[in-house]
Design a protein around this nucleic acid. Structure first.
Lengths: 218, 218
DNA sequence: CTATCATTGCAACAAGTTGTTGCAATGATA
DNA sequence: TATCATTGCAACAACTTGTTGCAATGATAG
């Protein structure tokens, strides 16, 4: 009702210091890389950012909100993979930004945080941004999450490059899973020649048999 | 020199209570599933095990040792995958115990713990047990870890089932990575039909083209 | 120039956690 | 029955956690 006039101007007062925010979020990413999600200490974040801890506590009420804010923007590069004209090229274009993310320490921290048992909806949703623009009606079986884009699969199908029965989501998840294993378990660089060979593997398969040899499944 | 006789009998005194040990380790696994590796509290473990915290502190000096002890035995089922006669069957036999592990809450906790940034050599080595009995001289590029067994690949090569240029380690890691993604990110069951389709994918590839179509790489 | 007022830093706080230590009770084995 | 490692208990200083009251700051409106 009188919400507009009585509680005073909303734009008055000292504006929020962009310096403070940036320093805190940078510190969160660094601390996350050092200590993981469960090991994140607000005190340490504040100390690292050279900011008083009250400024952190007042602005971000929960740890999850703090981490989510710090990770905003890290996943911005996951636009639709370009049409490269071949399935192999599309797969590479799809996997590349993920590998780039997993090659950064901050990207690794984000992935780890998303894996944490304590991670609730905020972070899970953030991590799921990868799949935001997926076509509706397809594969919403993964809970509240959106499936990853599958435009590349339809292009491949139109070109006759797509093997019948392959689930594009599973293909994407396999690529992502392999990259995660490489970056988080092996702790090695998931880019370059390694990525090329991964794309070759999921594109061509491990078997030397021609596709016609594939036995039907019940 | 006089080490045998002077410092008294080693077998005297009250023996360690197997009950206590079992209760503590069970509690560790449960706490790990609830709070993750960095969030593990010795106090909480002791309370959950209904044991005094001093008993825990005295027996396991570090958190890492405690977790490693709790995880001992979880990876016992990773013997050589049996020779099923086909590459597809071998791949399935290889992936199945991993999927079984990832389907248990405790297995998920173990995988998460191994992914933790704070995880040092103990746990990394424990998690690497998967690959212990690998043939020497092959692919020790992953640091101090042993590569996974590749006997299945040699069998497939002998049968003419193996596509040239495919790295068996990468194949195993891709299977494992996909299962981890399924269990830890999607938080879905990595067994059953899903696993069948995964094995199909890496066995056959996503492309409908015959292997001969595969362009040579520089 | 002045008043406003959200933001920031600072100091103190109770409540809880951490890892350690001294001491007494326990109980399997020799 | 004597031994003695193990276990439980209580207390501990040092540290962490999240909150609160108060004063200083400084961009903006008037």
């Amino acid at each position: 009702m009188t919400a507009d006039s009585s509680p005073a101007r909303r734009d008055a007062g000292r504006p929020r210091g962009a310096t403070v925010v940036a320093a805190v979020l940078r510190a969160v990413r660094a601390e996350l890389a050092d200590h993981g999600y469960e090991g994140l200490s607000v005190e340490r974040v504040a100390r690292r950012a050279e900011v008083n801890k009250t400024s952190v506590y007042r602005r971000w009420p929960t740890r999850e909100a703090l981490v989510a804010a710090a990770m905003e923007g890290l996943l911005d590069d996951f636009g639709d993979a370009p049409d490269t004209g071949t399935l192999r090229g599309d797969l590479h274009a799809l996997a590349s930004p993920i590998a780039d993310l997993a090659a950064q320490p901050e990207g690794v921290a984000l992935l780890r945080a998303a894996l944490s048992p304590a991670t609730g909806s905020d972070l899970a949703l953030l991590a799921a941004r990868r799949g935001e623009a997926a076509p509706p009606g397809e594969g919403s079986a993964t809970g509240g999450r959106q499936p990853p884009r599958v435009a590349f699969a339809e292009r491949a199908r139109a070109r006759g490059e797509w093997r019948a029965g392959v689930d594009p989501h599973q293909l994407v998840f396999t690529l992502v899973g392999a990259i995660i294993h490489r970056a988080l378990f092996e702790r090695a660089d998931p880019r370059g020649g390694w990525l090329d060979r991964l794309v070759d593997l999921v594109h061509d398969g491990a078997s030397s048999g021609s596709p016609a040899d594939r036995p039907p499944r019940p």
